[in-house]
Simulated assay, not measured.
Amino acid sequence: MLDDYYMININVADLERSIAFYNSLGFEVILDMDVTDPTVGDTYGVDEFRLIKAVWMRLATAHNHRWPVLDLVQFVDPPVLQDGSDDAMDFRRRRGLSRISFRAGSIDEVVAMHDRLLADGTQFLVPLTRRADPTGRPLALFWLRDPDGTVVEVLHVAAR
């Protein structure tokens, strides 16, 4: 069962420009990351992955709410894709809305939901993946499309 909204991911061409824009709307940076872990590249389907820069932002007025966050990602090496690619999986690196993300109550719940959906014949964009998040916490995730084509991520990141 899903527990909460987790994040909305937007791939950006210029991270600093996007931070300034969302700051002007009342968002503040709560986490700033340079990600070089090759397993993140595997999740995004990026060969020879070397670096993304990312920030999590939350509305400054949302101090009592942990989620959802706005996840701004700039692919640095390799760079973000321009529009017009014919590869159906390139949405993971294309500019703009990449996916919405929902948090399950536990890693076991992510696995159980994945297995149930798989048994029902669901096609996954990213199969069940277990790895560490950028801070080293265990996580499990999978991606699929809703009936209208929106990419949906289900995940759980374990507490420290």
Results as ranks from 00 to 15, higher is better:
residue 70 L to I: 07
residue 124 F to Y: 08
residue 142 F to K: 11
residue 25 L to T: 11
residue 19 I to L: 08
residue 127 P to I: 15
residue 132 A to D: 03
residue 37 D to W: 14
residue 137 R to C: 07
residue 94 R to E: 01
residue 30 I to E: 04
residue 27 F to M: 13
residue 78 P to F: 14
residue 158 A to I: 10
residue 82 Q to H: 13
residue 18 S to D: 06
residue 151 V to T: 06
residue 124 F to S: 03
residue 143 W to P: 00
residue 37 D to V: 15
residue 79 P to S: 11
residue 77 D to P: 04
residue 87 D to R: 12
residue 110 V to A: 07
residue 158 A to D: 09
residue 132 A to R: 11
residue 100 I to D: 00
residue 54 A to Q: 08
residue 33 M to R: 10
residue 70 L to P: 02
residue 58 R to A: 14
residue 36 T to M: 07
residue 73 V to I: 14
residue 126 V to N: 03
residue 58 R to N: 07
residue 24 S to N: 11
residue 89 M to Q: 14
residue 118 L to G: 05
residue 11 N to Q: 09
residue 38 P to N: 06
residue 69 V to S: 01
residue 56 W to E: 04
residue 94 R to N: 01
residue 122 T to V: 13
residue 141 L to N: 05
residue 38 P to E: 07
residue 31 L to H: 13
residue 30 I to R: 08
residue 142 F to H: 09
residue 78 P to T: 13
residue 141 L to V: 11
residue 65 H to C: 03
residue 107 I to T: 11
residue 121 G to L: 11
residue 140 A to C: 08
residue 65 H to P: 01
residue 116 R to W: 06
residue 46 V to N: 01
residue 3 D to S: 12
residue 99 R to M: 04
residue 64 N to I: 09
residue 145 R to M: 05
residue 134 P to K: 12
residue 104 A to T: 11
residue 46 V to D: 00
residue 117 L to G: 03
residue 109 E to V: 05
residue 123 Q to R: 13
residue 22 Y to A: 06
residue 75 F to A: 00
residue 18 S to M: 12
residue 159 A to Y: 09
residue 135 T to K: 14
residue 7 M to N: 08
residue 18 S to Q: 10
residue 109 E to M: 06
residue 66 R to H: 12
residue 108 D to K: 14
residue 60 A to F: 08
residue 116 R to P: 00
residue 132 A to C: 04
residue 94 R to Q: 07
residue 14 D to Y: 09
residue 140 A to Q: 03
residue 73 V to R: 02
residue 151 V to K: 02
residue 103 R to M: 08
residue 149 G to I: 02
residue 10 I to K: 02
residue 36 T to F: 06
residue 12 V to F: 01
residue 69 V to P: 00
residue 96 G to S: 14
residue 27 F to D: 02
residue 53 K to Q: 11
residue 117 L to E: 05
residue 19 I to T: 05
residue 125 L to E: 15
residue 16 E to N: 13
residue 82 Q to C: 04
residue 157 V to K: 04
residue 65 H to G: 02
residue 115 D to S: 15
residue 94 R to M: 03
residue 128 L to D: 02
residue 126 V to P: 00
residue 160 R to P: 05
